[in-house]
Design a binder for these strands. Structure first.
Lengths: 350, 350
DNA sequence: CTGAAAGCGCTAACAT
DNA sequence: ATGTTAGCGCTTTCAG
């Protein structure tokens, strides 16, 4: 089998076959009006026949526009970022933008400038920074070549002045979960937080804390522990919490995966959910409805986050192109919702 | 706040500031030897100072090489494709290729030519077709502009002559699962298949069937049912199977998510796992080890699939570029492995 | 060692 | 309605 170079049919080829100028072919390709109907027809036939496809790179060189968005992501193992990505691809395809995907090796890597370079040298029109705020990685922002003036949308971080941020309101989520448990008559509500160097974890925890305090419940450091999002950590930490907080009658767990580990241990110890202990998770992963018992949890519309991010980014790009003054960048904090299932339903209240 | 156009510093700008020709700057950027040390030094300083970044689009136009790979994916909701993507990003970044990601709206959409066009007009150097073989979507291959001669690697489909395919050997997986249950003394092993229009499902099922027959066990249509990969379908279909196959003492389930639904129902009916019913899943998702009881399953190294795909694609691209005759395209069928956990361990055999 | 000229595939601005 | 010229940012000749 002989291997050939990739066939690249150019405007010039089409032009010479159709016996017109390159310009005319270009006009046909771009649906410009000033072409005689029969010429257009003939050119179109040649295009179809030889399988001509415009070279977007060449076009971008002139138009200074690549119709490509950079997406920087980290932690594809987790469900959240993944669903966001899903929303991004869908919205981008709809707007006819292509996506250049880069995955960071970790949440707090040092290679961001390399990533940024790779994206910018490929002339992306804008960037979605879909890396959650962990530790002080938000400080990266200062490293971003500001003078570069590339439109940028940040995801999953604390909204701040002068940036466009799209995120779920995790604080509200924490409040919803806790208020629901209180409403079911639970009074001693513990918490298993995600890693507290994550912004999302801190917000969820604060929602839990504030809600309890407002309800007149005591909150102490004996009432919560910290996991690492994994089912294994849920299993491990719940043991600790059971020891430290024996009166505990309900738990708000930072995500559904840890909640799975918690359920595992509670079963093993003969504790019944929701009778002995009420349980609420966070995320509403697909499996949550099939845990035993089905898990009450907080549902975030991550797909929508991705969609909003793309739409806002494109707005920024277009304003930028027009030289229009955008309104001050606005941020989006989207409220999650409560999904009530058996794990938190106490039949007889208090 | 005033918005500026994106600053684009070009070779020309650097050249005029450093007071050398464009050519010299280009040589410095590309580490060509023929530059006087002090000139090089001066140019490098200017580059650093003005933040020059080469325009890869312009470079690609000349070199006919974009150092970009197209990745077409479908069903990002499922864990499998996601982990593959993870492997792809890592391998691509290592090889200094960028990734252009396209997601199909469904496994059997008609829009493939559009997707293909988008990728080719952006001049990707090669394409990874990471869409599982579902229904007759493999026939897409015939639609691909063969004359285009773009290097292409297919994932998760039946290897075939003349194509480079990377896939997990699902048949072996099915055999492993079934043989393990037989080894534990289970004799009436049912099966919940994934959707049988998926190649992977058919392979897993065939592994189950062949292994049972070879062991002298009877296999009938009463012994299996078909789900749709979701936990909900596992829960629904197991009911059917329990009715149809009352002697059943073990089940091989087509994926871990359905196995979760199965566990749910078995608990509800007071059936103990593994004492009354042995259970083996497929995939080894992170949660599987924390099911109740922990689930025995078949682990596939999807990340490795992604890695191999990228490496093979790059080999194809480079052979293509050199005009070298590649050896006939070879396919890779990677064996999965068995992860033994409690759900299938019978203490006293027979 | 360095620069000038040509051109990758395309479009924008003028011609005619 | 069509063609010509110039040039996007870069690299590849080829001269000096």
């Amino acid at each position: 089998m002989v291997v050939h170079k990739i066939d690249r049919v150019t405007l010039k080829d089409v032009a010479s076959i159709a016996d017109v100028s390159i310009q005319t072919v270009s006009r046909v390709v771009n649906n410009h009006p000033d072409v005689a109907p029969d010429t257009r027809q003939r050119v179109q036939e040649v295009i179809a026949q030889v399988g001509y496809r415009p070279n977007i790179l060449a076009r971008s060189l002139i138009s200074q526009r690549s119709f490509t968005l950079g997406v920087v992501i980290a932690g594809l193992k987790l469900t959240g970022p993944l669903t966001v990505l899903n929303g991004i691809t869908t919205a981008a395809e709809k707007a006819r933008y292509a996506l250049m995907l880069m995955e960071l090796p970790s949440y707090t890597t040092d290679d961001i400038e390399l990533i940024f370079d790779a994206l910018l040298s490929r002339q992306v029109d804008g960037i979605i920074w879909a890396v959650p705020e962990v530790e002080d990685n938000r400080l990266w922002i200062n490293k971003f070549p500001k003078n570069q003036n590339i439109p940028l949308v940040y995801l999953t971080m604390q909204p701040q002045e002068g940036l466009t941020v799209v995120a779920i309101n995790n604080y509200v989520g924490g409040r919803l979960a806790t208020a629901h448990l209180l409403g079911q008559g639970y009074r001693h509500i513990g918490h298993i937080a995600g890693p507290l160097d994550w912004w999302e974890s801190r917000q969820r925890m604060k929602g839990w804390e504030d809600t309890l305090k407002e309800a007149g419940c005591e909150v102490s450091d004996q009432h919560w522990v910290m996991g690492d999002w994994s089912p294994a950590s849920g299993a491990e930490k719940i043991q600790l919490l059971l020891d430290r907080y024996p009166e505990m009658d309900a738990i708000f767990v930072g995500n559904d995966q840890m909640a799975l580990g918690v359920l595992h241990v509670l079963h093993a110890q003969g504790l019944r959910v929701p009778e002995d202990i009420g349980l609420v998770g966070f995320d509403d992963i697909q499996e949550a409805a099939h845990y035993w018992p089905p898990l009450t949890t907080i549902k975030q519309d991550q797909r929508y986050v991705g969609k909003v991010a793309v739409e806002e980014l494109i707005k920024l790009i277009e304003a930028n192109l027009r030289g229009t003054d955008m309104d001050a960048p606005k941020s989006f904090l989207l409220d999650p919702i409560l999904m009530v299932r058996e794990s938190s339903i106490r039949s007889g209240n208090e």
